[in-house]
Nucleic acid binder design. Structure first.
Lengths: 183, 183
DNA sequence: CTCCTGATCTAGTCATTGACAAGTTCAGAC
DNA sequence: GTCTGAACTTGTCAATGACTAGATCAGGAG
């Protein structure tokens, strides 16, 4: 892979990574296509070639996020608690992706790559939920599992949970998710 | 309240409402201070007088949101299920406020009005959680309750839950939140 | 080797925006 | 009647998103 010359070589990935960095630093409002171009050392219009516009870049980010989530869930296996913890781990390791994924207004949710990756993650989530589902109301049990994992991850990322410094989010999530299983 | 003349009379409220409308229509990126000014029929710099900058306006929105949430929780009473459903009702009735509140990077989270309102809502939440807390691990039970309500509300607003059209979010949430109580 | 084609990136442009500075109008206190 | 501060306007500037046209590059066909 080349990094100099007229053709950058891997500009798409470089810009995507720069976007994750910039959004991570300054939030979803604190970045611009031109700033990403400057970071990558290319002209201000180069990113547009790969992503079209701002929404296009976030669409690519969302698709990548759902793919990463699906990979994480697949590795965790079908057990509900493990799947839930994997969900939390994904969110805290990829907070920018996670933040974008669940704000469909920021990107084109009907994009093919997004739809495909989202369906893949959705199928794995449903599989994890099935391990705790009773015969009646398994739909609601699945939603409860997704909700508690998603809610914990969201509140963690928002800094809404007051925890000791250096606490591992997955460790903190374990006893919380367990509350859904045993009482 | 006057609506014409040099002094608008209630520009702060008007701009705040316009912001909720604009964000609701086009998302957190699809609005500008100047557009709000146009909607209110004032000059492009008028909103800045009340809010300073964009973050200032979102700060006001967040503070108002936490206040509304606290009011909703207070009316619902201390029962966990009722508090959880009230939480979901607030989120679905004020989706823009809810969305802003839990993205601290968008506004000044250390603002006095925000802190005060957030603390008030937090105290009421903790109270609701206490009704299901066992002696051991009440902290985790509280977090589980907050997480499942917050998660359900977030997923609902993101359109991630596939439900029949015209479903009431609170009705849909009830059996889900119950999963945390009885098994 | 040369030409061709599509992909990649540059350069230039324009309306819009956020933020700021300075001036104007209004309302109420004294 | 005057003074004072709040509310709002007008003017301005650098930065941005989006668009267009053109330049450069890589690889394949002949």
């Amino acid at each position: 892979m080349r990094t100099i010359g007229y053709h950058h070589g891997d500009l798409r990935r470089t810009v995507l990574d720069a976007a994750v960095d910039a959004i991570g630093e300054s939030g979803l409002d604190g970045w611009s296509l031109r700033e990403l171009a400057r970071r990558a050392g290319v002209s201000h219009a180069a990113p547009a070639h790969h992503f079209g516009d701002k929404a296009g870049l976030l669409t690519a980010l969302a698709a990548e996020g759902f793919d990463l989530l699906a990979d994480t869930l697949r590795e965790a296996g079908p057990d509900f608690l493990e799947a839930g913890l994997a969900y939390v781990r994904f969110a805290t390791e990829h907070p920018v992706h996670f933040g974008v994924m669940f704000q469909p207004k920021l990107y084109r949710a009907d994009d093919d790559a997004v739809r495909h990756a989202r369906d893949r993650a959705g199928a794995l989530l449903a599989q994890g939920a099935r391990t705790v589902a009773t015969s009646e109301g398994s739909e609601n049990t699945a939603r409860a599992g997704w909700s508690i994992a998603h809610g914990f991850a969201s509140l963690w990322l928002a800094g809404a949970l007051s925890v000791p410094p250096d606490t591992d989010p997955v460790d903190a999530a374990r006893p919380v998710l367990r509350r859904l299983l045993d009482r």
